[in-house]
């Protein structure tokens, strides 16, 4: 069953159209990967799905509900959230306060303690660093806080924008392990945007290739890996 369905989405910034009717589906309980070079609209797609950027056309369906025009804060209540690109945390708050902020919505707050337990089990270091100001953490730990804070919203589906960006190779592996754990152990549905095509292809159940605001190819990871044409044209691997 498709948890998220995007049909012929159009959006952009002012008069600059970025998305030219891409369509995609994210199966419940899967990791779906969206690949493509920089500047093709992957981040814009995620932001539009969440409602941070307003769509100018097309349709977004989440759990059989038309959410095309729904504002982002209502979507968070429905269990959809986004880990934005770059390390978007609240730098002057402590690690603990950052996590609590994640449970800002009423629905999320009700599950705050269990969410905290889950997050501390996934990232034990965040429990240790609880009282530290988030801005003083290392890059990898900051990325953990961003992911952990998203988990505090009590999501059913989580969209991740370049979670491994700027991390040391060893940490990149850890991020991907976490993503797979979120799917296997927590049962989340994940839409993953990554520049690290190789690791992304290994983790994904299904892959879309995006270019110039459009979906150019799709398929199971093996199919994408098997097609030298796609790899050379869009992925450079």
């Amino acid at each position: 069953m498709a948890m998220l369905k995007v049909e012929n989405l159009e959006s952009g910034y002012g008069s600059m159209q970025v998305l030219w009717q891409p369509s995609l589906e994210v199966e419940k309980g899967s990791i779906t990967s969206l690949l493509g070079p920089n500047g093709v609209g992957k981040s814009t797609l995620l932001l539009t799905v969440l409602g941070v950027v307003a769509p100018s056309g097309g349709k977004i369906t989440y759990e059989d509900l038309d959410v095309t025009r729904m504002p982002s804060h209502d979507k968070v209540d429905l269990g959809l959230t986004l880990v934005p690109e770059g390390k978007h945390l609240f730098p002057s708050m402590t690690v603990h306060e950052n996590l609590l902020m994640g449970a800002y919505r009423k629905e999320a707050r009700r599950h705050r303690e269990e969410s905290l337990e889950l997050v501390h089990a996934l990232f034990p270091i965040l429990k240790e660093r609880e009282k530290q100001v988030a801005g003083s953490l290392s890059g990898g730990q900051q990325q953990m806080v961003t992911i952990a804070r998203a988990l505090m919203t009590k999501p059913k589906m989580i969209m991740m924008d370049e979670p491994s960006q700027g991390l040391a190779p060893k940490l990149v592996g850890e991020v991907f392990e976490t993503i797979e754990k979120l799917k296997e152990e927590v049962g989340l549905t994940i839409l993953l945007v990554e520049q690290n095509a190789a690791a992304s292809l290994d983790a994904a159940d299904y892959v879309y290739i995006m270019h110039e605001g459009r979906i150019k190819a799709e398929g199971k990871p093996e199919e994408i890996k098997g097609s030298s044409e796609i790899r050379e044209a869009y992925l450079g691997v």
């Binding site: 982002s72 804060h73 979507k75 959230t81 986004l82 945390l89 609240f90 800002y104």
Partner: peptide, 23 residues
């Protein structure tokens, strides 16, 4: 109050505030 937490969050990082559901 909740208002203050929301305002602190949006002052520190407006995008982060939006993705955790702050209006």
């Amino acid at each position: 109050s909740k208002i203050g937490f929301a305002l602190t969050a949006l002052r520190e990082d407006e995008d982060a505030a939006k993705v955790i559901g702050i209006f």
